[in-house]
């Protein structure tokens, strides 16, 4: 993705009011705010291909080259 991204990590146990605001039930949840439309993906992201697809990101380059780690 290069530098063209900004990621906020929120620990719901520390900031439940933010979880309330975003109406998050499950952890982990990734919310892609931009570009619209907003997308929400639930579950650990170990399946990179599925995660990338769900978040509408470019697919990971290869099976052994793991993308951004958690």
């Amino acid at each position: 993705m290069g530098d063209d991204h900004e990621i906020h990590v929120i620990d719901v146990l520390d900031q439940p009011e933010l979880a309330e605001e975003e109406r998050i039930l499950a952890t982990p949840t990734v919310i892609r705010l931009v570009p619209l439309p907003c997308r929400r993906v639930v579950g650990d992201l170990s399946d990179h291909r599925a995660a990338a697809l769900a978040l509408d990101l470019p697919p990971p380059r290869g099976p052994d080259q793991r993308g951004t780690d958690r």
Binding site: A26, T29, R40, V41, G43
Partner: peptide, 15 residues
Amino acid sequence: EEVVGDYDLAALVAR
């Protein structure tokens, strides 16, 4: 919401 992996409802419990 799309479920792509394992998850828990800890966020709900916290809320």
